[in-house]
Nucleic acid binder design. Structure first.
Lengths: 333, 333
DNA sequence: ATGAAAGCGCTAACAC
DNA sequence: GTGTTAGCGCTTTCAT
């Protein structure tokens, strides 16, 4: 026996037929205790492990789900993936990850093709960015899918973090402190607009405040530094809402380098509640997003889709404001 | 045709035999241009996609590798996984991730079993922590494996970041600044000792400096705060080397809360060069670890093992010291 | 309760 | 070059 033992090796060793071994394995039908014991002993002796490939081939019930993501290492992405993985593992699913780094059509196609080639029970797409959006569009309709993201959408099962509501609440908090308006630094959005920007604008409009143009940062926290310096140079800027904590940290550094203090001169708020946010100086006011929970909820929706359960297809959760020391009332003029 | 089209649907549609379609697919043998075109048209029409399960079953050349990791979201882990994934994808491999959260025997077994059930070309294990070490011990010998880690080891192919050398260099730097000794805060080690601790101790010993007991932190950056406060209370402490940047940030916060300044009163250095390290106040002296590169190198070694190439089985890289502003000469007494 | 036979979708081996 | 035949490791009939 050169390679791994197969089911027929087990059958031979136990002195039973192959289907009987299969029955023991799957528990699908009754097997007499005596034979069951023989089979189990043979399995243990041989170190036998069933082949998922052969199983998926014949039973058409793959136990693998694919996660498609534009990134795996940034905080929100990594935590969401972790949440999916934990929920999936708990229910006996294996997880496969495909990274689609750009929305470039060729790259998306290649990645999707490679993934869909696998026997998949379903797919979870992190629709956080343009690659995610592009990937979602390519998944064939007959495969169960769930989208995870910050922006609500109609057609597919989707788990959402209501970023717009949270951003609105945060902006209102800033306005309530007495700021005449709030400036906004965006992280790269998944589409023309994103929930954080939408909520921010909504709060400003409702309060009748000026809506200054949003400033675009990249995902690199360092991109916030120059933006912070520029913001510091504008005396109209008293409060800044950043698209994520990392950018906020860059912006704060830029503001500090320009000689202003936070929050005395300018209030800065972030988004995500990165584990380092509370350790920052000053500790960062932000919005706690339960990414791992998003992942878990997403997996549940995917399971519903896989099982054909006609259960809920949507799940929304409202992120929670975390007030710390980087925001305060504007200084009197 | 209820489900997905199969290779025989394609063959029927193109008016050729099944193996001919297979030959077009794999490029393994010559097919006349005419038939090739027919086949390609049929594939496109049907939206046919070969089944990786069936392929792996018969060809015994799976194109999937598994990554086994104790965590997916912490910086070093996430970056390493990203590096493996990118390298693997570039060579046509799909990546599957298994998380083993604890070294608990049952959990490790379950996770490994579930993974090995898949048709796998090979496995990459992140041997950063006890779960990784435990998992590594469970991989059957006939499966290509690579270990990625900070500590050199003999028997398996392994890609390494020479943390001991880097930690030694960093400690020497601190000693060279005039500190009588350097205190050390450890992150949870993968075994009794880890490279960072080893390098630190080696430098101290060689310099004839005191070797204070190492203090243990958890992975949570907040665990550093209390440690920082305690360290600040000890007047003998003038320099602290932390096992990673996040802990260093917690420690710095604790020291600052205790009323001391960095680096004037106490120098603090980290490890990893987290993207936020240079934005911290003061910017953190640390060691840049190329985790993504570690992942890439690891994948190459794994490929060697898979292909049976008798190429190198080890790859070491020396992390690079990054001097910033959190370390300085001790203040004169 | 159990075995024999069939077949999942594909590639390998062998004719021609 | 191309078709025919076999068979990967397993589950699913269908007998018994």
């Amino acid at each position: 026996m050169a390679g791994n033992p197969t089911i027929s090796d087990v059958a031979a060793r136990a002195g039973v037929s192959v289907p009987t071994v299969s029955r023991v394995l799957t528990g699908a039908a009754k097997v007499s205790p005596a034979k069951r014991e023989l089979v189990e002993a043979a399995i243990a002796d041989l170190g036998y492990r069933p082949s998922a490939a052969a199983r998926a081939l014949v039973s058409r019930k793959p136990q693998t789900i694919a996660i498609i993501a534009g990134n795996t290492s940034r905080y929100g992405y990594a935590e969401t993936i972790r949440g999916i993985e934990i929920a999936a593992r708990a229910e006996g699913y294996t997880v496969m990850i495909t990274v689609v780094e750009s929305a470039d059509e060729d790259e998306v196609d290649r990645a999707i093709e490679a993934t869909l080639t696998q026997p998949l029970a379903g797919v979870a797409v992190l629709k956080f960015d343009p690659p995610g959006v592009a990937a979602l569009g390519k998944i064939p309709g007959n495969l169960p899918v769930v989208a995870l993201s910050g922006v609500r959408e109609a057609s597919l099962p989707q788990a959402v973090l209501d970023e717009a509501a949270a951003a609105e609440e945060l902006t209102e908090h800033l306005l309530g402190l007495g700021h005449r308006t709030v400036h906004h630094v965006r992280v790269p959005p998944s589409r023309r607009t994103d929930g954080r920007t939408t909520g921010w604008r909504r709060a400003l409009r409702r309060a009748g405040a000026d809506v200054p143009p949003a400033v675009d940062a990249t995902w690199d926290p360092r991109s916030g530094v120059a933006i912070g310096r520029a913001l510091a140079a504008d005396p109209a800027v008293t409060a800044v809402f950043c698209g994520n904590d990392e950018i906020a940290m860059g912006v704060m550094r830029g503001i500090t380098e320009a000689g202003l203090r936070i929050p005395a001169d300018i209030s800065v708020a972030g988004f995500d509640d990165n584990p380092l946010a509370e350790l920052w100086s000053p500790p960062l006011t932000t919005v706690e997003q339960d990414f791992a929970g998003l992942g878990r909820r997403g997996f549940q929706l995917l399971r519903n889709a896989i099982d054909g359960t006609d259960a809920r297809r949507h799940s929304t959760e409202r992120p929670r404001l975390v007030l710390r020391e980087s925001t305060a009332a504007p200084k009197p003029r």
